[in-house]
Every structure is written in C-alpha cells, then in structure tokens.
Design a protein around this nucleic acid. Structure first.
Lengths: 222, 222
DNA sequence: AAACAATATTTTGTATACAAGATCCAAGCT
DNA sequence: AGCTTGGATCTTGTATACAAAATATTGTTT
C-alpha cells in the first residue's frame, strides 16, 4: 500500500475532476493545493504530473496546470475508441467467460433490468458501470481491462453530453439484455457488434464527418 | 518547446529502455541518474514518474524505480490489444484516408518492399514503424493514434526480438502489400482483418517468438 | 485615455536539506 | 550451517530554499 501524500491526493483530485467539482479549464495552483492539503508543493506536483499522464489535467510548461479541456473532436475520437475497446472486451468475453463469471454477469444484468423500470439514475449508473466492468474482466485480458476502465473514467466528466431521451434507461437496459445473452451464448461476433452499437453515441456517419474536420473548426467545451 | 531538464532526459531514458540498453528489471537509482545527467533528483523523479505513466518504468513505493518487467501473460495481453488497435486504425483509415495520405502510404509501402529483400533489420524496422504510423494517422482519430503509438513504444523492447525470426521480414512485407491495397481500395473490413492477422502472434509464429525470449521472461513474475 | 515600457509580484522549475522507511551486514542464537 | 535480530547505511519521499520565467502593476509617453 502506498501511503505517500502524493498518492493520497490523487484520487481526491481525480474524483473532483470526474464529478465536475473542478471544472475543465480551471487552474490548479500548486501553492493553493499544497495549502489546502497541508503538504508541500512537491507531492502536489507529482500528483499533477500523474493526473496529466491520465489525461485529466494538462500541464502547460511554465504556465501551470489546468483541468483538461477537450474539443468535440477529441470527445468523438475517445468515444469512438471506447466503443471499439468495449466491443473487443465483449468479443473476448464471449469466448473466455468462466461459469462463475457467467453467474455474476447474469445477476448484474438482472439488477440492472430491475432498476430500469424505476427512475433512479444514480443507482442505475452505478450498476451499469459494474455490469460493464464484469464484461471487461471476463475478457481475461488485464491490459485491455485496464485501458478500457481508464478511458471510461476519463470520459465520465463528459457523459452529461449524452442526450437524455425519455426512456433511455429502458432501451439501454434492453440492449444490455441482448449483449449479455450473446456473451453467455459465446457468440463473439454478435457480442462485439451489439456493444459497438450500444456504446456509440451517434451514427458512425456523423463521426466520419466530424473526423475529417480540421481541429480549428471545433470549439472547446466547458 | 519544453526545454525543462526533466523533459530533456525523458526521451533519453525512453530510448535506452526501448532499445534495451537499460534492461527490464534493472534499477533506476535516482541519485545515480541525477549525477549522470548533472541535475538534481527532482527532475529525475519527474521523468521517472512520467515514464512510469507510459508503462516503461515501474515505481515501487519506497523501493525505487526499475525498468518495467513483463510476464508472458502481460505480453500476450498487450499484443492482443495491439492487434485490435491496429485493426481499428486500418479500418478507419480505409474509410477516411485522404488522397495525399494515399500517396504517402504507397511510397512508404514501396520503401518497405525494397528493404525486405535486404537483411537490414534496423532500417526495415524504422521504415516499418513509419508505414504503420501513416496508417494510424490516416484513421483521423488522434486519440486512437496516440494510444496505438504509445502501446507500440511500450512493446518495442520486446518486438525487436520477433522481427529477427528468419524469413519474418519477407512475409511481413507481403502482408503489408495486401493491407495497404485494402486501405487504398477503401475496403475497411478487409483492412481490419488483414491487420489483425498481421499483428497477432499465433500458432507456430508464437512458438517461434516464445523461443526467442530471454530467460528473464519466464523467470520473473513481476 | 490608450499604449507601451519598466518594474514588481507571482508562479513554476530545480536544487538542496531533512525525515522516514527499506536494505544490508554482522553478531548472536538454535 | 542456517536463521534471526539489531543497528548502520543507503534510498526514497517531503519540505524548504532559490532561480528563472511568466504575469501583473505601475508610471510614463503620446
């Protein structure tokens, strides 16, 4: 266990960035953070560089650190990769899932299904993460699991951009049902295909269009 | 341009790790490195944490940094992800490549083809990287490009061994020809399929690959 | 009043000092 | 001999001091 001060404040800052308490673009003054956590600047700097490596903050040389801002193009790029990574997870999971993992996955799916009828967004969101995490793990590829989880974390501050359509939870849950069934059936191709469709926010055609736009066409958000 | 001392020694250390001058498992003593580069421990520590974020170095709390070692399982996992990431790059490239990029890709392919008949491993290796980089870029997904390049860098200390398998260059080059053709034709599915096959280590080739691994892969568990 | 320049202040990057945990080694023990 | 044990020593993690660059401020000029 790492009880160093630097690693203690990393999850705190990460949480505040991910939840939006620290908004994209806001400055992260080393001295202020040091005072706030009652440490010196040294561990603060280390925490910032590590958060920068995770993509959550941007360090501009000699000009301080800010919470990472992101362009729409960046966001689309990341969601596109996310869809593919999750798809790979699903495909591998369909091939490699163990009996024990099948049971856990079924249970998680049931829990999600039940919550879908209620309108408890936060609880559904948490269960949803859990369900997806189980699929990552069932891929039995630890590197893939880690990368996918990391990207999910990095995208979470921006998930609010996803359009909230009435009944979104219901349809999301239905998509899960098909996906889980495909994995349990060992249908790798179907599992991958369903996942890609499930995660992709907009049609690929729109994504293709945005991808060809020069970066300066896209404005920064928040 | 970042002229800070820390960012000056990062590429140096990275190069030495990637080329194998610094071998997996060897200790990276902060004081020694500081003396060697005539700086204090502070920028050395920053460089190490950033290399750790890239996965090239492992920092064990209170126990110093070592060049990242890797188990065979880790290696297989990473190669599997690599195959898929490159596959996605190829698929997107087939859909999004611009005319200018098509020309550059053709040229790179020709250069590789010519070198294939020689046994100039290092030059072929460099051209090979360039060819693949062009494909990453043609995906027009900067995040994907960055992630794929990063993983390639991380794998490169181990990949060099693979390329030295007799006859590997010839077959690799032939595979490239088909792949490039698929991208130029805009055949996304074929491009992805060929790339996965190209990168994936399987069957006899994987056994060959394992056989070339130095002892420390089988010995070390962390 | 606006714009510029020179200077003051703030903030980052690096060096050094110090504290605490980890490693090493020798002496004592079974 | 092999194994523990208790420091001595080394190394890392943190704090503080200092240097250099960026930002803010002030005063002058037009």
């Amino acid at each position: 266990m790492n009880a160093s001060r630097a690693s203690e404040l990393i999850p705190i800052l990460e949480q505040e960035i991910v939840t939006g308490t620290l908004k994209p673009g806001s400055r992260l003054d080393e001295t202020l953070l040091a005072e706030r956590f009652s440490v010196s600047r040294t561990p603060v700097r280390e925490a910032l560089t590590r958060l920068a490596a995770a993509g959550l903050v941007v360090i501009r040389p000699r000009r301080g650190a800010i919470v990472a801002t992101i362009t729409i193009k960046d966001l689309m790029d990341m969601f596109e990769v996310m869809a593919n990574l999750e798809g790979i997870c699903a495909r591998l999971a369909a091939r490699r899932i163990t009996p024990a993992e099948k049971i856990a996955l079924s249970h998680a799916q049931s829990a999600c299904q039940e919550l879908a009828s209620t309108e408890n967004y936060d609880e559904y969101y948490a269960r949803n993460i859990h369900l997806h995490s189980l699929i990552y793990k069932a891929s039995h590829n630890e590197y893939l699991e880690k990368q996918t989880s990391e990207l999910r974390t990095r995208l979470s501050p921006h998930r609010r951009l996803q359009v909230r359509i009435p009944g979104r939870i219901i349809s999301s849950s239905n998509e899960h049902a098909g996906l889980v069934a495909a994995i349990l059936d060992g249908n790798a191709d179907l599992a991958e295909k369903l996942t890609r469709a499930h995660v992709t926010i907009q049609g690929e055609r729109f994504n293709d269009f945005l991808a060809t736009l020069p970066a300066h066409y896209t404005q920064e958000i928040a």
